[in-house]
Amino acid sequence: MLQAIELTKQYTPNRQTIPALNALNLRVQPGDIYCLLGQNGAGKTTTINLFLGFLEPTSGQALVGGMNVTDHLSETRRLLAYLPETVMLYPNLTGLENLRFFSSLAGFHYSTDELAGFLTTAGLQASAHTSRVGKYSKGMRQKVGIAIALAKRARVLLLDEPTSGLDPKAANEFSDILRRLSADGAAILMATHDIFRAREVGTHIGIMRAGRLVETLTTPDLTAQELEAIYLQTV
């Protein structure tokens, strides 16, 4: 569903070449939760931006649903949902209004009850549906972000440090939602600093360093302590 083939990105500010991603190869199948670990600047966000088409690769290919993102930008974007570290929506609109707007943009038109259903499924309590998003906590906004992905029926989720700054309860709820989405067949690529969350929720883990994927692991084979040890040795 999600595939990087020799995916490379270089920035050239002031005629200097700075490699951000170097010949990345990875594959995320439906039902997979692929967690990318690595320090700041390792290339995690660049990878997500390349799959979203916000950046153009210097070489290599980013494929979504078998389509090259560069050549089929709008088609690939229809298949995926994106959740950044901080979901900033329109603060003057309610959660319901935000969801209606974003799902309509994606071409889905739901009744108010259906939209409320998505918000509830994403874990947002009913009393908050009609409150302005400006009053929401970060965790509540993340839930609206998840609802947007649900309403879009996205087959691919690209998550950029989504649990950063969430309280443990909210982070746990978030992990539950991810597992449910994964069980429904979504392919999830998540960039994170949270080793323990990655171990807990991920099916695959990739450790990145200086734009390279230096380690690939499958979670059932290792404990959180082992993952931490590998991570510290690798980065």
Binding site: L52, S74, Y82, P84, M88, L89, F102, A106, K152
Partner: peptide, 14 residues
Amino acid sequence: ETGTLKIVLSQGIS
């Protein structure tokens, strides 16, 4: 600045 733009564009609009 807020990152909303990325969410908007990721909905598939040009």
